[in-house]
């Protein structure tokens, strides 16, 4: 049977030790800075996400995003920002806004030629955060 075999493969594919391959595929921290710079440009260019970022402290947000992405990719960083719940409190964020940010990130990663598998690894880590971010 094809499906049980694949499930076993998927399960065994989960690694437990730090796997730096995705972090390296992003070009480490310098690569993440570029991706996040482009992400912010995309967020400000999209009318769905612009209202949330145009008056915010963009430099600080970018710095925290780089830290967060680095941690999620198992890189040697520490996240010093607020919890996702706290940092999004008071903003009316729906599922479409969340997806709009994912699209902005996908475009930023594509522009920086991040390999697809590494892109999806980061997105897989960020996606569950919708529970703390979407509040409408």
């Amino acid at each position: 049977m094809l499906f049980p075999t694949l499930f076993v493969l998927l399960l065994s594919g989960q690694t437990f030790a730090a796997d730096l391959s995705a972090f390296k595929a992003f070009g480490e921290k310098a690569g993440l800075v570029k991706v996040v710079d482009d992400l912010m440009i995309n967020l400000l260019a999209d009318k769905r996400t612009k209202p949330f970022f145009e008056k915010a402290d963009q430099v600080r947000i970018k710095e925290k995003l780089v830290e967060q992405f680095c941690v999620e990719l198992e890189g040697p960083c520490t996240y010093t920002g607020q919890t996702m719940k706290r940092s999004h409190k008071g903003h009316d964020i729906n599922t479409a806004h969340f997806y709009a940010l994912v699209e902005a990130l996908q475009l930023a990663m594509a522009k920086n030629e991040i390999p697809e598998r590494a892109q999806n690894k980061l997105l897989a880590k960020l996606a569950p955060m919708h529970k703390d971010i979407v509040n409408k």
């Binding site: 694949l6 998927l10 697809e116 999806n120 690894k121 997105l123 897989a124 996606a127």
Partner: peptide
């Protein structure tokens, strides 16, 4: 979608 593996089942 198993995003980390780029798979849809």
């Amino acid at each position: 979608i198993f995003l980390a593996q780029s798979l849809l089942v």
